[in-house]
């Protein structure tokens, strides 16, 4: 999996609010590929995950910041999250499981049955 996005996506993205790439971890666990994307401030309802061809597009809208008052310290960035991953053929697109907890999105990608290693029995003649 690598980051890649089509020009169509970039164009669409520019029309929206400023976006930043969320931090992500990808690892393998029990034969599944787990993708964790950190999106603090994004609730379950403000997240959008879609598959467009080879691209897995994740976007999350952050809740707006404080509207009144004076900022004494400002380190959090005002932006929505946007991230595109490229899925290769081995990922089963119908079996993607997504959960959101504590501002972390967890995607569980399963590999297609056909690409999983198969054990071949040797028959004795």
């Amino acid at each position: 999996m690598a980051d890649k996005e089509s020009t169509k996506n970039i164009k669409e993205r520019k029309e929206r609010r400023m976006t930043i790439q969320p931090l992500s971890n990808i690892y393998e666990e029990k034969g599944d590929v787990i993708v964790k994307v950190e999106m603090p401030g994004v609730s379950k309802n403000n997240i959008d995950i879609s598959i467009d061809g080879q691209n897995l597009i994740i976007s999350g809208q952050r809740e707006s910041l404080e509207s009144e008052g004076e900022f004494l310290l400002r380190e959090r960035r005002i932006a929505d999250y946007y991230k595109v991953f490229t899925l290769d053929e081995t990922v089963d697109r119908d079996k993607i499981d997504a959960t959101m907890e504590n501002g972390v999105l967890t995607l569980k990608l399963q590999l297609k049955e056909s690409v999983k290693p198969k054990k071949i029995e040797v028959k004795s003649s």
Binding site: E38, P40, E66, G69, E70, F71, R74, E75, R76, G103
Partner: peptide, 16 residues
């Protein structure tokens, strides 16, 4: 982020 309001101080911290 630290924001000072007339009667309170609001601290927000990203802790995913």
């Amino acid at each position: 982020d630290i924001v000072e309001k007339p009667d309170s101080i609001v601290v927000t911290c990203d802790l995913p």
